[in-house]
Design a protein around this nucleic acid. Structure first.
Length: 616
RNA sequence: GGCUUGGUAGCUCAACUGGAUAGAGUACCUGACUACGGAUCAGGAGGUUGCAGGUUCGAACCCUGCCCAGGUCACCA
């Protein structure tokens, strides 16, 4: 049994013995003692004042005495107001360390036998990945790692939006202005190459629209359609979509292309395949540099017709109802949502139809019992509706559906807008942060004797650590402001700071390996010091933190843990000598302690998708 | 307007899910190595946790009302 369980059981027994009242051991709450007080864990006794009918300090004292007498690991306690702080003895902590120091699986949960799917990334194929995708990908990837560490079997998937009007715009622009160029012939990365044509289409469309606005026809249109005091700018901004759909030559051409694609026109489909292929090649490079991969890709071109049969079945089961015009709806008003259409009056699918079908398909493919969708918070309502609908359809996985909703990424200058060219490109950003590390490292001159290849690998790891940590340390739900200048910071609360703690330890361990040191002497170390205890206490909480992070789908808690552990180590390292410790026992103990800190740091950072360098 | 998410030091973020004197980083001052790596450590200054009530031994956290910001309320995806 876990020591904390033992203590809780002890508290339960104490209350039974002292006050003849029954409490549930699982209801007992223990918190790590705050740094400014003496002790390892704290029991807040206020909840028991009613049961004990005595003052809080009296009760704390009585429970403390009982625990000290009956739980052998507890060596000491003190009472501050209603707070009972108790300490475990050194034997317990030394045992904890020696048992786990070489356990590479420390922190990993027992296998649950549960299969979980995580969907993330899910880009459109008309333009390259940007900063928003990076947040999505990092959240998805680390959630997946955390779920796996918590003992689940995990399947990573994404759904690629490879169809629709957007890609047709790129295709059309390439046909018109591409002059037969390819990524190879131009030396451009595939997704950027295709994205360029998307932008070109948009700018040509804008030119066409502006010209129309200034034409006699446009002016007349404005005068006869404007509402009230509406200015030209306001009116034409709103009318843009209408113009695209009904009047634009370019819009007409793009829509014709979409119709041809839907009809399966050979030439169109071939072009579509070719251009999407370029994009996928480009995406692959970006995923690779971020260090992520997927078990299966779903394509909307294959799934967009799914779900209709389930609507039929749901109609029979009265989950859905049909309106007079033939459209099919679900009524969620009793769940405080609205009615929602699931099938158009002409019998075709809408967005949610496809998602219903895809969820079912994934269940058939993998038998997953739990699904996590990593999607921006603008789709919160959509997923509420989707999950409720799947529940009512009686889908077997419907009780364990989660939307990992995250806030948008803003720049210090405001929102990212592709139209205004303020989007931060993923590939550029990665290259930039690595380059910054390179410059910094050259100045430092610490690793110049290594080969170019080795150095580049180190730069890559540090740069990505800086970028990833910077993004992951913020709680997912929070809308975050991304300052490119701060993202390349290598000091303070950063990925490289954590890496540096690890590197320092590796350096010590390398040096220690050249000496003959009897590590077993650490067991005879006499008095564990406060800072050592703090490190042990943090290490001790790691496994439960992994479980909590998995339950809450919150990688930021792991990032903050890693930072705090690294911080405690840096301080310990500064204040205590390890290889020149005052005794052989102290040296052996501290080497073991440092080693375990390094292992846990590497493990925690791995859950964030961050690799550790051995030197830096 | 309904629903929803957020509002904490100048700035970027924490706070173990209701616990002790609300913590870090950054920016600004000041200090610390003839080394187990200074990508480090220590100190100073910086707060009415958006506002007002309430609940209780105790509230940044729960309840009510209001203010500010984002999102969403399509037979778009």
């Amino acid at each position: 049994m876990n020591i904390l369980e033992t203590v809780k059981e002890g508290v339960k027994n104490a209350i039974e013995n002292l006050y003849s009242e029954k409490v549930d051991a699982s209801s007992v709450i223990l918190n790590p003692t705050r740094k400014e007080f003496e002790g390892d864990y704290t029991l807040v006794v206020f909840p028991y004042t009613k049961i004990g009918k005595k003052s809080p300090p009296q009760i704390a004292d009585e429970i403390g005495n009982y625990l000290q007498a009956n739980v052998s690991e507890i060596s000491d306690f003190n009472v501050v107001k209603g707070f009972l702080n108790f300490s475990f003895n050194d034997e317990f902590w030394k045992g904890f360390l020696s048992q786990n120091v070489d356990n590479q699986l420390f922190g990993k949960g027992e296998l649950t036998g549960k299969k979980v799917m995580v969907e993330f990334a899910s880009p459109n194929t008309n333009k390259p990945l940007h900063l928003g995708h990076i947040r999505n990908i990092l959240l998805g990837w680390s959630s997946s790692k955390i779920l796996k560490a918590a003992g689940n079997e995990v399947v990573n998937v994404q759904i690629i939006n490879d169809r629709g009007i957007a890609i047709c715009k790129s295709m059309l622009a390439w046909e018109k202005f591409g002059e037969g160029g390819t990524p190879e012939s131009t030396g451009k990365k595939g997704d950027h190459f295709v994205g360029k044509f998307y932008v070109e289409f948009e700018s040509k469309f804008k030119a066409e629209y502006t010209a129309w606005q200034q034409s006699e026809e446009g002016i007349e249109h404005f005068l006869s359609h404007k509402k009230g005091e509406q200015t030209e700018d306001e009116y034409f901004k709103k009318y843009k979509q209408n113009y695209f759909n009904n009047q634009s030559q370019l819009g007409k051409a793009a829509k014709e292309m979409l119709l041809k694609w839907e009809a399966g026109d050979e030439e169109t489909v071939a072009l579509w395949k070719k251009m999407n292929g370029w994009v996928y090649d480009g995406f692959e490079v970006t995923y690779d540099s971020l260090g992520v991969d997927f078990d299966k890709l779903y394509y909307e071109s294959n799934t967009y017709l799914l779900g209709k049969e389930m609507i039929e079945k749901g109609l029979n089961d009265k989950v859905f109802f049909k309106k007079e015009d033939g459209s099919v709806w679900i009524d969620l008003t009793d769940a405080k949502m609205d009615e929602k259409i699931v099938l158009r009056s002409d019998g075709t699918s809408v967005y949610i139809t496809q998602d219903i079908g895809t969820a079912n398909l994934r269940y058939q493919d993998f038998g997953v019992e739990k699904m996590v969708y990593v999607v921006a918070d603008e789709q919160d309502y959509h997923f509420k509706v989707l999950f409720e609908t799947l529940k009512r359809l009686g889908e077997p996985y419907a009780t364990d559906l989660h939307h990992l909703s995250y806030g948008m990424v803003d720049l210090p200058t405001g929102k990212m807008k592709s139209r205004e060219g303020t989007v931060v490109d993923a590939d550029d950003l990665i290259a930039e942060v690595i380059d910054e590390v390179r410059k910094n490292s050259v100045e430092r001159g610490e690793i110049e004797e290594l080969s170019t290849e080795e150095r580049n690998e180190i730069y890559r790891r540090i740069g990505l650590a800086a970028l990833k940590f910077f993004i992951i340390k913020v709680g997912p739900k929070k809308r975050m402001i991304f300052d490119p200048k701060e993202s390349v910071d290598l000091q303070g609360q950063t990925g490289p700071y954590v890496q540096n703690a690890y590197v320092r330890i590796q350096s010590i361990l390398r040096k220690a390996a050249t000496q003959e040191i009897d590590l077993s002497k650490g067991d005879n170390y006499v008095k564990i010091e406060a800072q050592e205890k703090e490190l042990l206490g943090s290490l001790f909480t790691y496994p439960s933190l992994v479980q909590l992070a998995a339950k809450d789908l919150d990688p930021s808690s792991i990032a903050n843990f890693c930072y705090n552990l690294a911080k405690d180590f840096h301080k310990f390292y500064h204040d205590h000598s390890i290889l020149k410790a005052e005794s052989e026992e102290a040296m052996a103990f501290r080497i073991q302690l440092s080693k375990m800190v390094a292992t846990v740091l590497a493990s925690g950072m791995d859950l964030l998708g961050i690799e550790m360098p051995e030197r830096m």
